[in-house]
Design a binder for these strands. Sequence first.
DNA 1: CATGAATGAGACTTCATTCAT
DNA 2: CATGAATGAAGTCTCATTCAT
Lengths: 213, 213, 213, 213
Amino acid sequence: MTKTGLSRKERERLLHKEDILTAALKLFSDRGFHNVSMQEIAEQSEFSVGTLYKFFESKESLFAALIRSCANRVSDILIPILDEKADEKQKIISYIESHKRIIEEYASSIRLYLSQNLQSVLTLGPDVEPETDAVREVIRQKLSDVFESGMRNGIFKSVDPWITTLSLSAILESFIFSAIKSPEKISIDDGISRIKELFFTGIAKSLSVQNDI
Amino acid sequence: MTKTGLSRKERERLLHKEDILTAALKLFSDRGFHNVSMQEIAEQSEFSVGTLYKFFESKESLFAALIRSCANRVSDILIPILDEKADEKQKIISYIESHKRIIEEYASSIRLYLSQNLQSVLTLGPDVEPETDAVREVIRQKLSDVFESGMRNGIFKSVDPWITTLSLSAILESFIFSAIKSPEKISIDDGISRIKELFFTGIAKSLSVQNDI
Amino acid sequence: MTKTGLSRKERERLLHKEDILTAALKLFSDRGFHNVSMQEIAEQSEFSVGTLYKFFESKESLFAALIRSCANRVSDILIPILDEKADEKQKIISYIESHKRIIEEYASSIRLYLSQNLQSVLTLGPDVEPETDAVREVIRQKLSDVFESGMRNGIFKSVDPWITTLSLSAILESFIFSAIKSPEKISIDDGISRIKELFFTGIAKSLSVQNDI
Amino acid sequence: MTKTGLSRKERERLLHKEDILTAALKLFSDRGFHNVSMQEIAEQSEFSVGTLYKFFESKESLFAALIRSCANRVSDILIPILDEKADEKQKIISYIESHKRIIEEYASSIRLYLSQNLQSVLTLGPDVEPETDAVREVIRQKLSDVFESGMRNGIFKSVDPWITTLSLSAILESFIFSAIKSPEKISIDDGISRIKELFFTGIAKSLSVQNDI
DNA sequence: CATGAATGAGACTTCATTCAT
DNA sequence: CATGAATGAAGTCTCATTCAT
């Protein structure tokens, strides 16, 4: 027994479990649940298939463990920030900024985490990106053009048009999902109105606040 | 030959193709690519498997056609709005408002369309929602609390806290994806800064503008 | 449509199902459920594994269908005999004699049928016959010796000692099973007493009856 | 060294072997060879899998040892009875009666023992009893009815109809097996004839003998 | 002799795809 | 062009057996 309270065997077991999860994370986050076989996870983790089943009772439960662990990693970063004693604006600023670290440290964990949260509604299929990305890009480009021209014409504030486009798309797509999944939460009309308001004026109380950001 | 330039046979063919796509849309958008078999699509569309292969050379290409068709339906709504001659603010307002119609008319098409656009990186696995939704909800709730308390304290403008939370989450998640997928487009630091700015002040030039929304 | 009311396709389907059952019967009755793989049944029946699953939804259900069909074949022979209008002795005589036909015509079906009925309690293992047959043979030989010597000494009637041995063993083993499986049906003491009586005196009312047999 | 000629170690070894066999007997006789894993035997016997392999070189050989031991237990009861110096009738009576003790003391050993002897030909599959028991029961009921009505009509002696039915079925089934397995031992016709004779008249020399039973 | 983590062959089952009718 | 029976590769999972400690 060591100070950790775990025998050597137990510690080894945990390490092995970690190894498997790491291997699985790499594969799943690259190719998705259905396009990765247990055989492949076995090879990647340098264990045998049988061993995988000693640690996880099924492919699904392995995946679930992975998701749980990623969710925890993310929430370990975000929750303390939101919990700390500080002025709300500071919190939101820290919250936004903490995403730098998230991106830098946990790319694939996060990708997996988000994949579950954003739309676990869907079990996606093969990569048809090239086919639809074109359409999407056209729309985004046009949206971006509108922003740029609006800025030039003095109608909009001068902000980054790409981030603006990305943000508006994200807000709207996210709202669509939400409206489809839980239509009871808010009426579509209300939601849309509030998105407009938020998007146009932000949440800052006065323009002067800008300086603090 | 008719004025469409298509013989009866050709027109029938197109109709049949539509029927298949409709059946497939229903199934795929409910259960995802990997959990729907060609057999099932055949049954739902009242054709035989063989016939499906007369129209699409593989399951993947059927799926791709579906995605393309959904993408078109969406872009047919959005592009004209962005293209029309009008003041940029009007365009953005119309753009946002057009999403009402999208949600109302094309729920499942859209779900499928978004699924590909937001993160075709990932082929999702089994539904682990219950497991991670908790974590996600905790974070969102805390975030929402911060907004509410900030509003009470006069730090933030009084806007809908749920939409605000949803929007910030969406922007950040979308940015993360983007930063992971195309790190060359913008530096993480820049992106984060601009998100802060956008989120706090919106894109409207002055507070007076609010009235127009 | 033919006079059978089945289309050609349907008739072919039935024939194929028969072919599969025939192949399976051969393998299962030789080697037992657990020692036969679907792959092997596929090879023996000259179909592919996939096809087997078009006809039967699982290995177990294939096996069940087989058992049902064997049970029917047996009962089609035995039940009419017991149902016909005739003197009871005649019925029993016909019943016993019908087993000639059963043995001759349906060896492997019957083996499978009996296997389920006699003692489906047990899922047998590897063939350890050589090991235990010796023991069993010793006992049977001794039993047979007792009968023979009893006959020589005028204590028993002169009947075939081997059949006698086989019969007594069968009765006792069958009773043991029954007593273990459904102890409520009859008390062990009663059962044993009645077996003795039956075995020693038979069921014929008087010795004169013997002539009729 | 003790008077048994075995060192303590050797005696312990034997005890351990016994423990394993006891555990295995329980499991095998309940669920059959193929539905019990070495892991389970290890748990039941409170040894590790590795240890099991120190005592038995394979799962099959463990099973064989078990069968041997059960066979011995049975023959230790039966052989002395057949060997003792006594009148043949007495021996047969004792032989039959000894089965009481067998049933009472060794239910599961015996079940396993019989399973091998009656028809080791077959490795049984899943429990399809409910499906075939109906058929079997119909036949047995009809047979039993014939006996009862024959007894009422004075054609048969008044004996227990259930035991009579069980016995005739057992004799015939056993004969079928025997005829299929070793067709050379006796001709089917001869066998059937002798079964009739035996079944109708028993082996007692005269009716007066009944009193002794 | 005891342990139990690790192995990997092999079992069952599914399903995209083909092709003769 | 329509059909759907047939195919068989590939996937998930089990379990007898080994071997380092």
